[in-house]
Every structure is written in C-alpha cells, then in structure tokens.
Amino acid sequence: MSTKNSAAPQPELIEVVLAKAHTHKGQPLKAGDKIKVTADQKAWLEKHGVISTQQEDVSNG
C-alpha cells in the first residue's frame, strides 16, 4: 500500500490576451486583458474566438 504525500504537478500556464469580453474564474474581463490558462483552455478560447490565434507564447520562463 502506498501513500501520496505530494500534490499532483500543476499544468503549465500560458498567458494569453483576450480579443473580446470573457468571464474567467468568475471575473468579467474585457478585450485586451491578459489571463493565464492551460494549453487545453487556450485551444478552447481560440476555437471560440475569445483570443487571437496569432499570439506569442508569453509563459513564465
């Protein structure tokens, strides 16, 4: 039997710029605001036109 004492690793976050108004984590945001999202969230936002598909990767690094 094994026990896990450490938390699961957090996914890498990518900073994106909103192309239009959007609510993120319950907070209303406007076009031009920056948020940090996972790669899956970024793909969803791009698909729905919430962020531009031509953004630079500005993740922490």
Rank of each mutant, 00 (worst) to 15 (best):
P28Y: 01
Q27T: 06
V37R: 04
D33K: 06
K36I: 00
H24A: 07
L29M: 13
S2P: 10
L18T: 05
M1Y: 10
A7M: 07
V37A: 00
K30C: 07
D33F: 07
V17S: 14
P9M: 04
L13E: 00
I35C: 01
K34P: 02
M1H: 13
V17F: 04
Q27G: 02
T23W: 09
A19T: 00
A7C: 04
K20P: 03
V17L: 11
L13K: 03
S2T: 06
L13R: 06
K30D: 11
K20D: 05
T38F: 01
H24T: 02
S2Y: 05
A21F: 02
A39Y: 02
D40C: 03
S2L: 14
K30G: 07
V37T: 01
K25Y: 06
K25N: 08
A19E: 09
H24R: 02
V17I: 14
Q27R: 11
L18P: 03
D40S: 13
A31T: 04
N5Y: 15
T3L: 14
K34R: 14
G32Y: 03
A8N: 12
K4N: 15
I35H: 00
Q10A: 11
H22P: 01
K36C: 02
A21V: 09
K36H: 00
P11E: 05
V37E: 00
K4T: 15
K20W: 00
D40G: 10
G26P: 03
S6N: 09
Q27N: 05
I35Y: 00
L13I: 01
T23Y: 07
E12P: 10
D40P: 02
K4H: 15
Q10S: 11
T3G: 15
A7L: 12
K20M: 03
A39D: 08
A31C: 06
